[in-house]
Amino acid sequence: MLTKRIIPCLDIKDGRTVKGVNFVNLRDAGDPVALAKRYTTEGADELVFLDISATEQKRKTLADLVLRVAAALDIPFTVGGGVSSVADAKILLRNGADKIAVNSAAVRTPELINELSTAFGSQCVVVAIDAKKIDGRWMVHLVGGKVPTQIELKDWVKEVEIRGAGEILFTSMDHDGTKNGFANQALAELSTLVNIPIIASGGAGATNHFADTFKLGKADAALAASVFHYGEIKIPELKKILKQENIAIRITDENS
């Protein structure tokens, strides 16, 4: 049986992780490679690296980081943040990234999704979507949620699937940072609209939130950042609890 995935997300700026971490025995908490290795050992199923730097050096720094991560990691990872062309994506994939996440650039130029999936295959195209409920309708937002659009979430997910997205990373801006749980109602609805995997993001605060998003939200994977970085939720314990809840999950100490 295909297992549900637990995905820690690392925010990257100028080649370093942005948020602090309080892992013991981790000498350099800002080094994404050390942190990624730690999560791999703990049983993370996949990792996402989101680059939020805006310097001119950005591309080269990110490409170098991807290469270092690929050398150290033996689980899949996605890289996103400012990917706006096939050329951008090619450098990252060539350096060892498994998937590329596109967000604002895909909304501005939807053809980018077609171009990426034609060039590299749907399996490495993740469309990240930030949305927020306005007057009862889920609306897509750009630039990390700063800029609203007139596009409805339900229309956009269908369009990205048709254009060749292999997966959707849905972040609810209403839930992000609240630690009150994922947007399960919206997630479950998305699962009826498209037939590609959906990653739930935004709202993780406790272990039962993960169980809920897999059961009620029908999510294929769940992504979180701070609860993992600050050690509030430890992946081995989380996975043990999910397994007890009869959720298909990969337990690494038994079957590594």
Partner: peptide, 23 residues
Amino acid sequence: VKVPQMGWNIVTHSNTGLFQGIQ
């Protein structure tokens, strides 16, 4: 089922050849 299949799935194998020594 969702297509593509994406993620970790259980593999039942022959215990021989490529799978020797793998749980």
